[in-house]
Design a protein around this nucleic acid. Structure first.
Length: 324
DNA sequence: TCGACTGCCACTTTTGAAGGGA
DNA sequence: ATCCCTTCAAAAGTGGCAGTCG
């Protein structure tokens, strides 16, 4: 699966004459573990979010090619809501449960290797393994803050820049994959997702035995489950018996925009310039020990500020999650 | 009463320090 | 002194369960 940008970066000032041989449009991004992502996507991917932060599984891992080997790039990920709804799991399917919660401050996760030359990023797949999702709106660890029971899509940003300071006026491209859309949850709702996670996530090996959690037996023997929980479990077991025959994709009554291939969301100048209009929750937040430029002077770049370019204000800067 | 959320549990993998040998 | 490999303990990451809360 590949993402081929069809838009040229509308940047009139190229970094240097020698870079003209490497048009930005030649960047190709492919999603690693596509088979696994597809398996989850067909059922309806769920990602656990916790107060302390939870890693994603499958993890966001992309293969990049077409970068200028000696130019420096930053790799970023952010998460955008798929729609304005909150969902609930009802019987065997997701249903709209109302309007979405107010959008949270947009946080962007910066790959810890950033900035690095193109050759570095192309050497091997870029993994965002350490990225964590949280539902703690007061999170201080720089995790990505999401609402539970909402749908999100990760977006990968490739920014040609020497450092985080110059990100604002740098050439960038955004890639996303329909297969990576997920519903954030605090506890798994769809048992098929639980099973897939257990089968594929090495950390969950302990739950694998014949698809049943045997290591808990000793504990649960001593504890009488509450009637409601017991009934719930029975329902789940009944569901499981016929689950494999069902086509969960058809069961979903909620639209997920399906695209046959990953798409380039946008290309040009940093995404937040045109898309982020709200005030950040943490203006001037530290990024890798530095503070985002606040003065308007920082927003103007003599060579890249073109007439068609729409510059944002300092307040529209999204807080960036510093690498651990 | 119900469903979402939280904290704890038992278990596994990962990570990094320590030690030994070449 | 340096490098490589092995060992081992601690840390981090899993989903399940039961209790709490709104």
């Amino acid at each position: 699966m590949q993402a081929l940008p069809d838009v040229k970066a509308p940047c009139e000032a190229l970094p240097s004459p020698s870079l003209e041989h490497y048009p930005q449009s030649s960047i190709v991004v492919t999603l690693e573990d596509m088979d696994l992502w597809m398996k989850f996507h067909q059922i309806g991917t769920e990602m656990i979010i916790t107060k302390s932060g939870r890693r994603m599984f499958p993890q966001c891992k992309i293969k990049v090619s077409g970068l200028i080997p000696y130019a420096k790039y930053l790799m970023l990920v952010d998460f955008v809501p798929m729609d304005n709804f909150r969902y609930k799991w009802n019987k065997d399917q997701w249903e709209v449960a109302g309007k979405a919660e107010p959008q949270l401050p947009c946080r962007t996760y910066v790959h810890p290797d950033s900035p690095a030359p193109g050759s570095h990023w192309m050497k091997e797949p870029v993994s965002f393994q350490k990225l964590k999702l949280t539902n703690n709106t007061l999170d201080q660890h720089g995790h990505i803050i999401l609402h539970s029971m909402h749908r999100y899509k990760p977006r990968f940003h490739i920014v040609q820049a020497d450092d985080l300071f110059s990100v604002r006026w740098s050439i960038f491209q955004v890639f996303s994959f329909p297969e990576t859309v997920f519903t954030s949850v605090t506890a798994y709702q769809n048992e098929q997702i639980t099973k897939l996670k257990i089968d594929n996530n090495p950390f969950a090996k302990g739950f694998r035995e014949h698809g049943k959690n045997t290591r808990r037996e000793g504990r649960t023997k001593c504890q009488k489950p509450s009637p409601s929980k017991g009934q719930k479990r029975k329902l789940l077991e009944e569901k499981q018996s016929g689950a494999e025959e069902r086509d969960f994709e058809k069961d979903e009554n909620v639209d997920v925009k399906e695209e046959s291939s990953p798409v380039v969301v946008s290309s040009g100048f940093p995404f937040w310039v045109s898309e982020q209009t709200g005030s950040p929750a943490f203006p001037g937040q530290l990024t890798r020990g530095r503070v985002w430029p606040e003065s308007s002077k920082c927003l103007r770049h003599p060579t890249r500020h073109t007439g068609s370019m729409k510059l944002g204000t300092a307040s529209s800067f999204p807080p960036v999650t510093p690498p651990p």
